[in-house]
């Protein structure tokens, strides 16, 4: 029930922000669409704590700020390496210490979002990572991102 209400609210905000036409006809069509979507997701049984992770809301902004900083630093590093051509590709296995699937997904996605490291396979709790440089692989192996994701999503 909680998830249904929050999903309807999210969809309503999404509609209002995207539409920009606040007449009765359009608003009632929006209401109808929200009802259909909520009904379909209810029948498919896809709305749970994984698709609407409200329990993470409080801790996500801090992590995102840190990730933003990491992404910018890594992007600039890769950009410089594109022009100089100084690369040393390497494949390493990294251990994901998160217990939930959610945590592992966040960790693997964070690795891929950071340029210079791409997660190419996940087997249980071992993530295979292709890194553009040895330095990038070593930074990842030091495990700061792993610890932060563990604190975020267990």
């Amino acid at each position: 029930m909680r998830h249904t209400i929050s999903l309807s609210l999210l969809l309503a905000i999404f509609w209002l922000l995207n539409s920009g036409h606040y007449t009765w006809l359009i608003l009632s069509l929006g209401l109808l669409s929200i009802a259909i979507v909520v009904w379909v997701t209810h029948v498919m049984d896809v709305v749970d704590h994984e698709s609407l992770p409200w329990h993470l809301t409080a801790r996500i902004p801090g992590y995102n700020l840190w990730l933003l900083k990491e992404v910018m630093v890594a992007s600039l590093d890769v950009a410089i390496r594109i022009w100089t051509g100084a690369i040393s590709p390497i494949v390493v296995d990294v251990k994901a210490s998160q217990k939930t699937d959610m945590g592992k997904v966040i960790y693997a996605n964070s690795i891929t979002l950071t340029p210079g490291t791409v997660s190419i396979n996940i087997q249980d709790d071992i993530i295979t990572v292709h890194a553009l440089t040895r330095v990038g692989a070593r930074n990842l192996a030091e495990g700061e991102m792993d610890r932060r994701v563990s604190r975020l999503a267990g």
């Binding site: 890769v78 340029p115 210079g116 791409v118």
Partner: peptide, 8 residues
């Protein structure tokens, strides 16, 4: 390696 370039 090209994936990293696309990522930038």
């Amino acid at each position: 390696t090209r994936i990293h370039a696309a990522g930038v």
